[in-house]
């Protein structure tokens, strides 16, 4: 790895962080606008044209707020928890392919630039592994805050995420069985080569993934760790200012990540699997647009669901995860395995 290559990697890291943070800001804006419209309100419309500067105003407000540290907190863990949430949220995006690689000539050398920070043969497992660490931010925040509501929020998040992670993992294994690879690029290429997105072949897996993704990101109707009617604000009750903002950012970045994963695994990633049979391979900037459009579509669904479905009851949530989602995903996995075994002969 020479200096230029190192520079490219550093640049990619910067771009990912910058894009995710901007994406976070405007996802909150999108959410407020969409929910407002669904409730026949206008939503934020004072800061800038159409309220477009509202996220910036929010950011400034949060930065200048006082950071209050309550008495009796476990200081180290209290400071650590929001950082864990944020770092884990950003890390998960590293393996997401956003466009086809391009070749450029830098200093007389032809180099291939991938629109992806890293691709290794277990990229999907990497994402699952990193996202499974996201729960620590919530659990530790809940424990360190020395507050009953926060503690219950943290406990709920631990139980919920462990239960739903399992169904999600099993659902994704059936996708891996179909493709025969854990690499993100292989999964996208497979969908392009076959000319159909995996959502057609694995609708059940997609459904389970969509439900568990909402639970994993703690979004309504599964937002138990911070259920405001019961727990004040759940795990982040005792957090203010930028420390609270880090949790907020992590939640929205996680939404973007699971949406990107849904686009990559089930919707053909940065390609248009069926359309590209007629148009040929599209250039890289169109790829980015296609990927972005799919992510925004998924984010819109997230928001739509939040505006539509009320929160479940907590015991129903656990029962649904263990008694409905997990058996269905296991049956889907077994069925997929059997079909593949017979087709292979």
């Amino acid at each position: 790895m020479d200096a230029i290559e190192l520079g490219i990697v550093a640049l990619k890291c910067l771009v990912i962080v910058a894009v995710l943070l901007t994406g976070f800001a405007y996802t909150t804006f999108l959410e407020r606008k969409v929910i407002a419209r669904m409730q026949q309100r206008l939503g934020p419309n004072r800061a800038g044209p159409f309220g477009l500067l509202q996220p910036a105003a929010d950011g400034v407000k949060l930065i200048f707020k006082e950071n209050i540290t309550p008495v009796g907190v476990d200081r180290f863990v209290y400071f650590l928890a929001p950082i864990v949430s944020m770092v884990v949220a950003i890390m998960a995006f590293a393996v997401m392919p956003v466009a086809d690689p391009i070749t450029v000539t830098i200093g007389g050398q032809v180099r291939e630039i991938r629109f992806q920070l890293a691709d290794f043969n277990v990229a999907l497992l990497y994402v699952l592994g990193i996202t499974s660490l996201a729960v620590y931010g919530l659990v530790l925040a809940g424990w360190a805050s020395n507050n009953k509501f926060a503690l219950i929020g943290g406990l709920r998040s631990a139980a919920q995420m462990v239960s739903y992670e399992l169904a999600m993992g099993v659902a994704l294994v059936s996708v891996v069985l179909v493709v025969g690879s854990l690499s993100m690029n292989d999964i996208v290429d497979w969908q392009v080569a076959k000319g159909l997105p995996l959502i057609v072949l694995q609708p059940v897996a997609f459904g389970i993934y969509a439900i568990t993704a909402i639970a994993e990101t703690n979004r309504a109707p599964f937002d138990f760790p911070e259920a405001e009617q019961e727990l004040v604000a759940g795990y982040h009750t005792e957090y203010t200012g930028m420390r609270f903002a880090l949790f907020f950012m992590a939640e929205y970045i996680n939404m973007i990540t699971v949406s990107g994963l849904a686009a990559t695994l089930f919707l053909g990633g940065h390609h248009l699997p069926f359309v590209e049979r007629f148009t040929g391979n599209l250039p890289w900037f169109v790829d980015i647009g296609v990927f972005l459009a799919k992510v925004i579509l998924a984010l819109f669904l997230f928001i739509w669901i939040r505006a539509t479905i009320p929160r479940l009851r907590y015991d129903r949530l656990m029962a649904f995860g263990w008694k409905v989602l997990l058996p269905i995903s296991l049956a889907n996995l077994a069925l997929t395995a059997v079909v593949i075994a017979f087709l292979a002969r």
Partner: peptide, 23 residues
């Protein structure tokens, strides 16, 4: 692969449950 399995199983699941019980 082993690294990812280590993260998912031990760091992501088992230790979460340990923390859960401790809390």
């Amino acid at each position: 692969f082993l690294a990812a399995a280590q993260l998912i199983v031990y760091a992501g699941a088992i230790m979460v449950l340990v923390l859960f019980v401790v809390m």
